[in-house]
């Protein structure tokens, strides 16, 4: 099939970018979207132009590196799919495709479709962990965790940290991303001792990093390639409310 691409090109973080139009000819429907871009890039290189820079790594939908907004939708039109797992059979001959980077103040564009997502790491560093030491921990079966709890935690833990939720959010809020980790650790007994500290620190980091506030649009859930539910945001809110209750130790 033959397609027309409109791709965001931007030389560097300080430069102004714009959409450029490229033809993509003779694309096989078995190709993945990124393989289609590889083809276009090979053509650009041969004609002496700079290829389109885009983030990608595992190409199997788990590393969370790929990040493109395709026709207004993060990761493209196939639900529950990262760009690297999106296949060209989703498109038809003659389609026009707009490809843009994640857009948010906290995700400055570095070049073309590549953005800086360090802010997500900073949110994690604020408290996305259980402070256990290496070694000296209990036997794994000493803590019984009911299957529904383990499943709930796993549902939240499936987040790949790609940032599609932020790219889709009209407020550029990182609430779904943050809530997935807060909910995972708050549900598990291991995470409870630090639950109060964690939710306060991580939600503070959201604002410090320049993300917006959640106003319940739920675009995040719809755009998430892993189907992370907004119920985890409710869980985060609940955890936040708990911090306002006095504890038995009076703290």
């Amino acid at each position: 099939m033959d397609l027309t691409l409109h791709v965001w090109r931007q030389k560097g973080p300080q430069d102004k970018g714009k959409l450029e139009t490229y033809p993509a000819k003779g694309i096989s429907s078995d190709m993945s979207f990124l393989e289609m871009l590889d083809e276009v890039n090979d053509g650009l290189i041969k004609s002496g132009q700079e290829p389109i820079a885009f983030d990608h790594d595992c190409r199997e939908g788990i590393c969370g590196m790929c990040s493109q907004v395709i026709n207004g939708r993060p990761h493209g039109k196939q639900e529950g799919t990262t760009v690297c797992q999106l296949h060209m059979r989703q498109y038809n001959d003659g389609d026009e495709i707009f490809i843009e980077p994640w857009r948010a103040k906290a995700f400055p564009v570095q070049k073309d479709l590549i953005v800086d997502r360090t802010s997500l790491d900073v949110i994690m560093q604020a408290g996305g962990y259980v402070s256990c030491h290496t070694g000296g921990v209990d036997d794994a079966n000493a803590l019984l965790i009911p299957k529904p709890t383990a499943d709930y935690a796993m549902d939240a833990a499936e987040c790949i940290g790609c940032g599609a939720c932020i790219a889709a959010c009209p407020n550029s809020s990182a609430m779904l991303f943050t809530s997935a980790k807060v909910a995972q650790l708050a549900a598990l007994p291991q995470g409870k001792p630090e639950a109060r500290k964690r939710v306060l620190a991580m939600t503070q980091a959201i604002l410090d990093e320049g993300f917006g506030n959640c106003t319940n649009h739920y675009e995040c859930e719809a755009a998430c390639p892993k189907g992370i539910s907004v119920k985890f945001i409710a869980k985060l809110n609940r955890e936040y409310l708990k911090t306002m209750m006095p504890t038995s130790t009076g703290a």
Partner: peptide, 22 residues
Amino acid sequence: NNIIDQCVAQGVPFARDYAGYL
């Protein structure tokens, strides 16, 4: 064996059975 203990302590959500065991 230490690895499994370590990961559970970190909150890695390993699969569990209905009684709560790994």
